Measured scan of single mutants.
Amino acid sequence: MSIQHFRVALIPFFAAFCLPVFAHPETLVKVKDAEDQLGARVGYIELDLNSGKILESFRPEERFPMMSTFKVLLCGAVLSRVDAGQEQLGRRIHYSQNDLVEYSPVTEKHLTDGMTVRELCSAAITMSDNTAANLLLTTIGGPKELTAFLHNMGDHVTRLDRWEPELNEAIPNDERDTTMPAAMATTLRKLLTGELLTLASRQQLIDWMEADKVAGPLLRSALPAGWFIADKSGAGERGSRGIIAALGPDGKPSRIVVIYTTGSQATMDERNRQIAEIGASLIKHW
């Protein structure tokens, strides 16, 4: 067993022997301040990774656009098919120029040779490549099948209805392509620590998230040296922004954090800054 596999296998073990965790309302004060600064709703939840206990939450059962955070769930569904012998990570998928959609920095470079399922998941999570996500959605049967996968996990809230990039439209009061912070946090925890996926697939999923290259201005910008984070960000229309993450000190994750916002007129930089400040408060009061 590799060191990384050992780390993920012992996530519940280490967490069980940690000192009790206590909620700190100071972080919620910052979440509410972010709402004021952005002029928009902000949803927040913080779960203990081992027990699933909610440590703090704000608007945990209000719907927010998922945006690209759905790509972690998508690759979880792909990995479940791999575990069941219905898919192979090494299978190569070929596609054409007509398949390319807006923001496809990886797939646009491989029109000639195609990409493997493993490479597509890596591109979808680490670079948020939209064509990679659409190609992977095709392998599982489309958005409705991802929703069905989530329902089978016990998540009857999260739903995907459309493809990239239309799913980022974020129309107010439109339930399409949305989740709730509580539902997303619980589902992410199941994917990373539950028995739904094999140990190898859980490790692969967290490795992809740990290698995320496009979430630097968010929670990662607030992390002290030595902290662990595996995350996936999302951005959408109407001032929408979000991030889902597993993080913790001492090089291992111990909490799940989900943050979503929508309806702001603020710039992307300002949305990023507010999420980073929430992260800084979380870490300060850990």
Rank of each mutant, 00 (worst) to 15 (best):
A123H: 15
L223D: 01
K32Q: 03
T261G: 10
V78E: 09
L205M: 02
M66L: 02
I206Y: 14
I93Y: 01
A276E: 13
E145I: 00
A235Q: 05
V214C: 14
V258A: 08
A183G: 07
L38Q: 05
E108L: 00
N173T: 10
E277V: 11
M209R: 01
T139L: 06
S96P: 05
V257K: 06
R91D: 12
C121Q: 03
G248L: 06
G76S: 06
A84S: 05
L219S: 10
I45R: 00
E277T: 08
M153D: 10
W286C: 05
P253R: 11
G234R: 00
L38K: 00
V157K: 05
E237N: 11
R91Y: 14
Q86H: 10
N134M: 11
A235H: 03
R176C: 14
K213C: 03
L199R: 08
G234A: 05
L219N: 09
G236W: 06
C121G: 01
V214W: 06
S240F: 05
D161P: 06
A77R: 00
A40D: 04
S96Q: 00
E26K: 15
G279I: 13
R202A: 09
Q88I: 08
P165R: 02
A245H: 04
D99W: 06
H24Y: 05
I243Y: 13
A235D: 02
D250W: 03
K30T: 15
D36H: 05
S80A: 09
L137A: 15
S233E: 11
R220C: 07
I206S: 12
L79Q: 15
H285W: 02
G142E: 02
F149V: 04
T193N: 11
D269K: 10
R271K: 06
A40H: 06
R63Y: 03
R189Y: 02
E108S: 00
E277S: 12
T69E: 06
L199E: 09
Q274G: 12
V29C: 13
R220E: 04
Q88E: 09
L205K: 02
Q97R: 15
R91K: 10
K30C: 15
A280R: 09
L38F: 00
D269Y: 02
N173W: 06
V29Q: 02
D250P: 04
N130M: 15
A77P: 01
R189S: 13
D231R: 10
L73V: 15
K284E: 09
G154E: 09
P249I: 02
T126R: 02
D33S: 02
H285N: 02
D48W: 03
G141Y: 15
E270S: 13
P60E: 04
G141C: 14
T178K: 04
Q86W: 12
E102Y: 10
E277F: 13
G85N: 15
V78R: 06
V257N: 01
A215L: 04
I243C: 04
T186C: 10
L74G: 04
E87G: 14
H110T: 00
W227V: 04
I229E: 09
R63V: 07
P172S: 08
P105M: 12
G141F: 05
K32F: 09
L205S: 05
R92G: 04
K144N: 11
E237V: 11
P224S: 07
N152C: 08
E210G: 11
A133K: 03
H24Q: 07
S233H: 06
W286G: 04
K252L: 09
G52I: 11
L282I: 11
S96V: 00
V78P: 03
P25F: 15
A77S: 00
G279Q: 03
R118M: 05
G43T: 02
I244K: 07
R189K: 07
V106L: 14
S68T: 02
R159V: 06
L135G: 05
A132G: 08
L197R: 00
G242H: 12
P105G: 11
M115L: 13
H151W: 14
G154W: 11
A34F: 05
T267N: 09
L282M: 08
P253T: 05
G251H: 05
E169W: 05
F58W: 00
D129T: 00
K53N: 02
Y95H: 05
E56M: 15
E87W: 12
A170R: 06
H285I: 03
G154S: 13
L247A: 11
P181F: 01
P224Y: 14
W286E: 02
Q86M: 06
T138E: 06
R41Y: 10
T107W: 15
V258M: 04
V29F: 04
P224A: 06
D174K: 02
I259K: 02
D33E: 03
D177N: 07
L223W: 10
L28F: 10
R41A: 08
E145T: 07
D129H: 00
R162S: 08
L38S: 03
L199T: 11
T126M: 00
P105H: 02
N98E: 01
L73S: 08
M67G: 14
P224T: 03
A34G: 07
W227C: 12
K53L: 08
I243E: 06
L219P: 06
E119S: 15
A211C: 05
A124C: 11
M268V: 05
L205A: 02
G236N: 08
C121N: 01
D129A: 00
T112W: 15
C75F: 09
A148W: 13
G142I: 03
A182D: 07
R189M: 15
T138S: 09
L28W: 15
V78I: 01
D83T: 06
L89E: 10
S221A: 09
M153W: 05
E46A: 15
N50I: 07
L247H: 13
Q37C: 15
T187N: 15
V258P: 04
L191Y: 11
W208P: 09
Q204F: 01
R255A: 10
D161G: 07
V31L: 10
D212C: 06
L47N: 03
D174I: 03
W208R: 08
G242D: 12
N98Y: 00
M180V: 09
P105S: 10
A40W: 11
P60Y: 12
V157Y: 09
L135E: 02
M209L: 05
Q86F: 15
L89G: 03
N173Y: 10
L146P: 14
S240P: 05
A200K: 14
Q265S: 09
E270L: 10
E62P: 00
P181V: 05
G52M: 10
R81G: 06
I275D: 13
K232H: 09
E145V: 11
L28R: 10
L38H: 01
D207I: 08
L191Q: 07
K71W: 01
P172T: 12
D161E: 05
W227D: 14
H24M: 15
P249W: 12
V29A: 08
I275E: 15
S264P: 13
G142W: 08
V42T: 15
L47Q: 13
Q274C: 14
A215R: 07
T267M: 06
Q97K: 14
A40T: 10
V101N: 10
Q265N: 14
I244P: 04
A183Q: 08
I45E: 00
G279C: 05
M209E: 11
H94T: 06
P172L: 07
I206A: 12
P143E: 14
F70M: 01
A34L: 04
E175I: 12
T116L: 08
D83Y: 03
L223R: 09
E270C: 12
D48C: 03
T267G: 12
I93L: 05
D174L: 03
K32L: 08
